[in-house]
């Protein structure tokens, strides 16, 4: 046996660095595209000069005021939000799939989205202001996970299975409560607002939404990136993780806490957007394999790219916004079916 013996089984990808380059350049290209495209005609030159105008005010001299403001106040924060939210879904979906040892779970496994949906619906029913809707969505998203997590602690056996079950139960509970609120809502006024929120959209994003979103999501992404190799070990199950010197319960608690904060932050501004957290990790595994050292960064980049693409389609194709949740579902399902068919590496 010699270490220099050629591998009998060539790596799946002949040029892994090309794959890597494409994955990480994709969100950059799509971010640029998101700034260039929109319902209002603005030339690429005007977009570029508008972007630089805060630093060089004379550059924007001959650009229509509306165009400059649209780029800086509408397109830029919205593209940033799509980037952050997509990255968040990619990262949390991957992390949840790892710690639940289950490639079929997504960011909503512990009911965070359902809880957030209920919080948003409640705030839409009680108040009208956007910040209250976001605050309620965020708080109830956390509450749902808290209930699922501590509910599962009531049972001694097989914590992972009980946690999954609790997540499903709490999610269903909040979905029922959402249905109740929709029933109570004024059909002319609150009901469409609730329905639209539940379908997911970045229409109302402004700069004021960005700082909190960025802090939570970037913080969460950094944390998950730092521990990403440990996700490999957690995905083997508690017994093996323990025998390899980890404290799986505490590690999973940190991952759940972090992923929940990120998902709640994302969902509280975007509304319910499904499938991204489920589909993106599969795409990532197909491209770079299951090792979370490479998979997590790839999922983050792919999630950001996917969400930028979806949001650009949602806001440019028709005069009316296409709900993001509808788009991600319509595209996510066929993509997932395709990936599952192509994927022969286990997962």
């Amino acid at each position: 046996m010699t270490h220099s013996a050629p591998s009998t089984d060539a790596p799946k990808h002949k040029h892994p660095w090309i794959t890597g380059l494409v994955i990480y350049i994709l969100p950059v290209i799509l971010f640029g595209l998101a700034l260039l495209l929109g319902r209002y005609p603005i030339t690429p030159g005007e977009v570029g000069r508008s972007l630089l105008s805060p630093f060089f005010p004379n550059l924007a001299a001959d650009i229509p005021e509306v165009a400059q403001q649209l780029v800086l106040r509408i397109r830029l924060p919205r593209a940033l939000a799509a980037l952050l939210i997509g990255a968040s879904f990619g990262a949390t979906g991957t992390a949840f799939q790892a710690i639940f040892k289950n490639p079929l779970v997504d960011s909503n496994i512990l009911g965070v989205t359902s809880g957030a949906g209920f919080g948003a619906a409640l705030a839409l029913l009680l108040f009208r202001d956007a910040w209250q809707v976001q605050l309620f969505a965020f708080a109830f998203g956390l509450l749902a996970v808290f209930l699922a997590f501590f509910g599962s602690r009531l049972y001694k056996s097989s914590p992972l299975l009980v946690l999954t079950l609790m997540g499903i139960l709490i999610g269903s509970l909040f979905n029922s409560l959402i249905a109740l609120l929709k029933y109570l809502a004024d059909p002319l006024d609150t009901l469409p607002a609730i329905t639209f929120w539940l379908l997911g959209s970045l229409t109302t994003i402004t700069w004021t939404d960005i700082p909190a979103l960025a802090v939570i999501i970037i913080g969460g992404v950094v944390f998950l990136l730092l521990i990403r190799w440990r996700l490999n070990i957690l995905s083997l199950g508690d017994a093996e993780a323990k025998s390899l010197g980890m404290d799986p319960a505490r590690s999973k608690l940190w991952v759940i806490l972090c992923a929940t904060l990120m998902t709640a932050a994302a969902v509280s501004v975007s509304g319910v957007i499904g499938w991204v957290g489920l589909v993106i990790p599969h795409a990532g595994r197909l491209l770079v394999g299951p090792d979370h050292k490479r998979l997590l960064p790839a999922s983050i980049a792919l999630g950001a790219a996917f969400m930028l693409l979806m949001d650009t389609v949602a806001r440019t194709v028709l005069p009316g916004e296409i709900p993001l949740g509808v788009l991600t579902g319509l595209l996510g399902v066929p993509i997932l079916i395709l990936l599952l068919r192509r994927n022969r590496m286990g997962w």
Partner: peptide, 19 residues
């Protein structure tokens, strides 16, 4: 200005309103 929209109430973005 929104005569081309179909259906009931439509949710749009501010850029569309500007357009």
């Amino acid at each position: 200005v929104s005569a081309d929209l179909t259906g009931y109430w439509n949710d749009v973005n501010l850029e569309q309103v500007a357009a």
